[in-house]
């Protein structure tokens, strides 16, 4: 059963990675990052059960806290960029390129 969980986690992580590469809307990109973090959490919880060790669950808990903080800051940045550029597309935030 452990293998099943880990393969599911790998699949979700890969789908999230493809989403980050493909999507242009900054908010959707962010959601894909969240999906990747969730996939990692699933792997942590699975390994915790596999080894009968609670540390995996603690790490998953910390990942959740960091993800929540990251979402707050990231969305604040997206809102700020939207206010100045009137767009949430990652293609429009390209001033640093030149």
């Amino acid at each position: 059963m452990t293998t099943h969980y880990l393969v599911l986690s790998a699949l979700l992580f890969a789908i999230g990675a493809v989403g980050v590469l493909v999507r242009r809307n900054a908010i959707v990109v962010f959601m894909c990052v969240e999906l990747m973090l969730n996939a990692c959490n699933l792997a942590f919880v699975t390994f915790a059960r596999q080894h009968g060790n609670l540390d995996g669950q603690i790490i998953a808990f910390f990942v959740m806290v960091v993800a929540a903080a990251e979402v707050v800051i990231g969305l604040a940045i997206i809102v700020m960029i939207f206010r100045t550029r009137r767009s949430a597309s990652v293609d429009d935030a390209n001033l640093l390129k030149y």
């Binding site: 059963m1 452990t2 293998t3 880990l6 393969v7 790998a10 699949l11 992580f13 890969a14 789908i15 990675a17 493809v18 590469l21 493909v22 915790a48 059960r49 596999q50 080894h51 009968g52 060790n53 609670l54």
Partner: peptide, 28 residues
């Protein structure tokens, strides 16, 4: 991106699938 994602998924799944796990210890 699709090729990279597919390759990544296959790589991870094969890596995980090659490991033989004992029955989970459980949290009891």
């Amino acid at each position: 991106a699709a090729v990279a994602g597919l390759g990544f998924a296959v790589l991870l799944a094969l890596g995980v699938g090659n490991v033989t796990f004992a029955a989970p210890t459980g949290m009891e």
